[in-house]
Amino acid sequence: GGVGGPSASYIAPKSVWLPAVKAKGLEISGTFVRRMGSIYMEMSLSNNAMQVMTDFAIQFNKNSFCLAPAAPLQINAPLAPNQTIEVSLAVNTVGSVMKMDPLNNLQVAVKNNIDVFYFSCLYPLNILFVEDGKMDRQVFLATWKDIPSENEAQFQIKDCTLSADAVSNKLQSSNIFTIAKRTVDGQDMLYQSLKLTNGIWVLAELRIQPGNPNYLLSLKCRAREVAPHIFQTYEKILKN
């Protein structure tokens, strides 16, 4: 949450990625954020073992959107038993590509002085929504026509009571841009665009009917498999 403005994009709460029982006492919980155009993996590392932990390092497996650590994991002091530290790892998108199932799955290896540990986590696709994702209006109209209807996916966003303008503002904080708004038969139709870090564009039509808490989201994208993940991020952003 927090106050409005361009830096208030949606951040999921931290979840446990590596339970201590699976990692000889090391517990890692984390989340992903996009801040000022950069992606960060924010983690809490807890030492639940009886010995000091040192020599931390992190690696990602190849993944769908080329996520890779932008720098080594910076942990400057040994992690004492019962100690927890917060770490923010800068992440870039110039790693190697390998399509994962699910698409947003990230396999991570973490080592310390005790052993090497592996875990998987899921990142919300909104960390990949770039700041220049506002499509030119003419290009939007042409692209919307050009993408065949087989590539249109529809989803219901349930139990949402925001106005069309509140929806636009909230989504824009997460780099989903409203290009046009029309009211037809009392329904607000928002035309929106976003662009992923790998250059994939997603076009959206969000239909809001007065008195109806269920919005209809139509997504058009040449890469069809991203649509369910985009829907999930719409839900999270709007319900946050």
């Binding site: 109209l141 046009a180 029309r182 037809v184 329904q187 139709m189 039509e205 239909r207």
Partner: peptide, 20 residues
């Protein structure tokens, strides 16, 4: 505001989507 015909095009799109 500059009328480049796009405002009208978006109106047509919205109408076509609500009354296919």
């Amino acid at each position: 505001e500059l009328d480049d015909g796009l405002d009208e095009a978006f109106s047509r799109l919205a109408h076509s989507r609500t009354n296919p």
